[in-house]
């Protein structure tokens, strides 16, 4: 069922493609960096209710932007199946004697790695901008949240890739799924300021718990408890993998 050689080679392929597409990495880093730079500087002196006492806006914003980077890169990673279909390579993958589960796992392994490289680059830059860490061991917990966010949205990307025939629906997913998920997650502002009905929607967004978890780990301030966030994110990640794998297996590859 689980074919390790296949997972390894699918992962290796993602790595090679990633390293060879340097402009893609820079492009993917640019948007979160602009958000971080401009919002961080623009709202620097702003006192936003619900942000936590003594937490500066940059401290509040960095976990949100890390979540944003993961949301975008991972969803695109899942959707990249559509590129493979478009360029024919998906057939080469699907005709191989490899379980469909292994194919999905290989894809997720590759996607998580590339997303994590990008988010860690971004994280590094945020220190240059003045971000300060609360404690070193908690950093590991933050990494766990990042991986869970990445897995969740890779699964979501696979779900959409299985439902779409080509890249034409891409901008719809971008504008009506990814951006709403981003704004609902409280990446840029505390959710306490939302009206109740909008906050209810936020609670359906996996990214809400992911970013809140990173905040709990990195700056020691969060809306929910760290354990609650961890459990919820774990469930989302598992659920999305299964849903993505299930739909991917059922979709026709030609």
């Amino acid at each position: 069922m689980i074919d390790r050689a296949a997972i390894t080679v699918l992962w290796l392929r993602e790595m090679k493609r990633f390293v060879r597409a340097k402009s893609r990495i820079i492009g993917a880093l640019a948007m979160p960096l602009f958000f971080l730079g401009f919002l961080g500087m623009g709202f620097r002196r702003m006192a936003i209710p619900g942000m936590g006492d003594g937490v500066g806006y940059l401290q509040f914003l960095v976990p949100g932007i890390l979540g944003m980077s993961l949301l975008f890169s991972s969803t695109f990673g899942g959707l990249s199946v559509l590129w493979d279909r478009e360029f024919g390579f998906l057939k080469e993958i699907m005709v191989a004697p490899v379980s469909r589960v292994s194919i999905v796992l290989g894809r997720i392994a590759g996607g998580v790695t590339t997303s994590m490289i990008q988010v860690l680059l971004l994280f590094g830059i945020s220190f240059l901008m003045g971000f300060r860490l609360r404690s070193l061991p908690m950093l590991l917990l933050a990494l766990v949240f990042m991986i869970l966010i990445s897995v969740t949205f890779l699964g979501l990307g696979l779900v959409f890739a299985s439902m779409m025939k080509d890249m034409q629906g891409f901008s719809i997913v971008m504008n009506f799924v990814i951006f709403p998920l981003f704004f609902l997650s409280g990446a840029l502002y505390p959710l306490d300021n939302f009206p109740a009905w909008l906050r209810a929607l936020s609670y359906l967004d996996p990214l809400t718990y992911g970013i809140d978890g990173i905040r709990a780990a990195l700056i020691g301030y969060s809306s929910f408890s760290l354990v609650f966030n961890l459990v919820v994110m774990g469930c989302f990640a598992l659920g999305m993998i299964f849903l993505g794998a299930f739909l991917f297996e059922r979709s026709e590859s030609v």
């Binding site: 074919d3 050689a5 296949a6 390894t8 080679v9 290796l12 392929r13 090679k16 493609r17 060879r20 597409a21 360029f87 024919g88 390579f89 057939k91 080469e92 993958i93 191989a96 004697p97 490899v98």
Partner: peptide
């Protein structure tokens, strides 16, 4: 059905590994 971002050999390597 080739990955054009890989070399010829890498495409073959990919295939051989997929076939265990």
């Amino acid at each position: 059905a080739l990955d054009v971002k890989l070399t010829g050999k890498e495409n073959l390597e990919f295939h051989a590994m997929m076939y265990g």
